[in-house]
Design a protein around this nucleic acid. Structure first.
Length: 574
RNA sequence: GCGCCUGUAGCUCAGCUGGAUAGAGCAUCGGACUUCUAAUCCGCAGGUCGGGGGUUCGAAUCCCUCCAGGCGCGCCA
């Protein structure tokens, strides 16, 4: 998924510099007649998989070769000849393989990253690619008729991390939860609780057809009995149902908010569906659609011609009985969001709703908005595993692990990490035993442990009166071990990771980066000692310790920042 | 039947706009603690990228087709 048009920002500074350098060299070569081509190509840069191929590489010579009617290596020769690296951020440029141009960054350049981290601290990695554009991310949006299940946890973790990421990238982000508190299901829900209530008070009652049979319904009813006694007993069944719908809804919603808060997920807006019906917003939306010419009547119902926008079939807006469909309300909801002046709407839905995507996109366009206004992320479902055993879940049998139970068992950090760990278009296998295990198998602890280890070094340094040096007093040229240079390279990548994660809407990329950085730190840790506490140690050792202290403190900072974006704590001690 | 997602090492997954010898983690096996936390590190091994065709200098990546799995195809929400 590419949102290129929306994500025109400054982008990654270093990459841009490099791109400019190469573009300039190409136009120079063209000017002097060495390379001729008629249409421009944008150089593509990547980090070579193999370190010995440099820090960056571009394939531009190979792309130009056929146009220029020259061999790729010849084109590369001409380009390299015209590179004018005024800022001296390259130490070496090589032509390799079929025609890659490999760039090696100068020491000066990637040591500069340490200074930048110290300056920006918790804002390191942040940059302005959004220019304050307003984005609304709608996620979770569970029906308020029961507890959240583990799938909701995934959307909570993904949505919240995405919101954090986009904020870091300079967007103005709001988080919203749409509450489907209207319609049939709410009525059934109220009836179900009412029936259990009457049951508790000792009266035989027929449980509603299609009623919610989960244990939690009984719990809600019992709570009402305990708090309010039998005062609703004497009411007529329709009055009772109405009241219970309200009470039970309040309880469930409060519970949903509480559980999400346990995960550290806070919404800016809780948007209720009911007012859309009561305020005439749905009628307005429909008349707007009619004005645009996409509405027609057939078989007593009112239809939206979504097939004009690639949907399989047209969809009903108003039923034969005069009641608007869920779809109609959803159109009014999206219209409401669009009216609130967001530059971009992002919806995160479970895979079980993917069949709904086309019609909502159609509705947006029928309302006169460009399709790109709305981005719908479809996430695949979550399978729970306990050890090697798949945990079967079924609403019918009531065998359900709720999000609350999962959080209680594995904790918020592990839960969020696991929910985030995979691409959203892959079904997620969530192994409860693994999430709980305090071992190297568990990536959450692996990353957090790196952070805690560094904090311990800093504490140890303090005890040896090796306080964190002033950055001006440090000679970073002393950092020349491979593991040190690898760490600095990885630190430098952070901004780029944020950029890619946002551009492609893939927050799971953060977990990969966190693990890579943690891993490089652990390697460094076993190879390099930071604090030389030998009283007889040389001045040179002291200088090296200073430089390494700054280095590990920078790693600590970036680990902290990436964990923050994921909504996971960065413990000082483990 | 149609639509969306998925198929890469024994397992769970990365792999960007088509690029260099397809990468991690786990599991297995073999090593490393008198040293700032061994919740760590190092090494070995492991692959017809679901099958087949096509596009081209080059395909895990793009196109077609087939196979397998998940999800969805209401005037439910």
């Amino acid at each position: 998924m590419e949102l290129s048009s929306f994500f025109l920002g400054r982008g990654n500074g270093l990459k841009e510099n490099l791109a400019e350098l190469v573009t300039d060299a190409i136009s120079q070569a063209k000017k002097v007649g060495e390379i001729s081509f008629s249409y421009d190509v944008k150089p593509f840069f990547e980090h070579p998989k193999d370190k010995t191929h440099g820090d960056w590489a571009t394939n531009v010579a190979m792309v130009l070769a056929s146009q220029a009617n020259l061999s790729p290596r010849k084109v590369a020769d001409f380009i390299v000849k015209h590179l004018n690296d005024k800022q001296h951020f390259l130490s070496k440029v090589e032509i390799a393989g079929p025609g890659f141009i490999n760039f090696y960054l100068s020491d000066k350049w990637f040591r500069g990253v340490l200074k930048e981290i110290k300056e920006k601290s918790e804002k390191f990695g942040y940059f302005d690619m959004g220019y304050g554009k307003k984005v609304l991310i709608e996620f979770v949006s569970a029906n308020p008729v029961g507890p959240l299940h583990v799938g909701h946890g995934r959307w909570a973790a993904v949505g919240d991390a995405l919101a954090n990421l986009m904020t870091a990238a300079g967007y103005n982000v709001a988080r919203e939860f749409y509450i489907n508190d209207y319609g049939n299901q709410m009525r059934i829900f109220g009836d179900s609780v009412a029936a259990r209530y009457v049951e508790f008070l000792g009266e035989e009652v027929a449980f509603p057809e299609d009623g919610y049979r989960g244990e939690y319904i009984k719990e809600i009813a019992q709570e009402i009995v305990e708090k309010e006694g039998d005062k609703h007993f004497a009411l007529s069944s329709s009055e009772r149902s109405k009241i219970f719908r309200k009470i039970a809804y309040r309880q469930v919603l409060a519970h949903i908010k509480k559980v999400l808060l346990t995960m550290g997920v806070k919404f800016d807006v809780w948007f209720s569906e009911t007012p859309l019906h009561d305020s005439g917003a749905i009628d307005e939306a429909i008349s707007e659609l009619r004005k645009q010419g996409y509405v027609y009547k057939e078989n007593g119902a009112l239809w939206l011609r979504t097939t004009d926008f690639e949907d399989d079939k047209d969809r009903v807006l108003v039923r034969e009985n005069g009641k608007p469909t869920y779809f109609a309300a959803d159109i009014a909801y999206h219209k409401n969001k669009l009216n609130r002046d967001f530059d971009k709407l992002i919806d995160i839905w479970g895979a079980d709703h993917h069949g709904y995507v086309k019609r909502v996109e159609a509705a947006i366009q029928a309302l006169g908005y460009p399709k790109e206004k709305l981005e719908i992320i479809i996430g695949q479902l979550v399978n729970l595993w306990r050890g090697g055993e798949l945990v079967r879940m079924s609403k019918r049998t009531g065998e359900m692990v709720t999000l609350e139970e999962l959080l209680q068992e594995v904790g918020s950090d592990a839960a969020r990490y696991f929910f985030l760990m995979r691409s959203t278009n892959t079904a997620l296998d969530f192994d409860i035993e693994l999430a709980k295990s305090q071992s190297s198998d568990n990536p959450v602890y692996y990353v957090q442990y790196a952070h805690a280890r560094i904090c311990n070094i800093l504490k140890f340094a303090e005890e040896k009166s090796f306080s964190l040096p002033n950055i001006e007093d440090v000679n970073f040229n002393l950092l020349c071990e491979e593991s040190e240079l690898d760490l600095m390279r990885k630190l430098m990548e952070f901004e780029e990771v944020i950029e890619v994660s946002v551009r492609k809407l893939i927050p799971f990329r953060l977990t990969k980066y966190a693990e890579e950085l943690a891993s490089l730190f652990h390697v460094f840790y076993t190879k390099c000692r930071v604090i030389n506490d030998d009283s007889a140690c040389q001045q040179a050792d002291v200088e090296l310790s200073k430089a390494r202290l700054i280095l590990v403190d920078c790693v600590r900072q970036v680990l902290n920042n990436v964990l923050n974006l994921m909504g996971i704590s960065a413990p000082k001690k483990m």
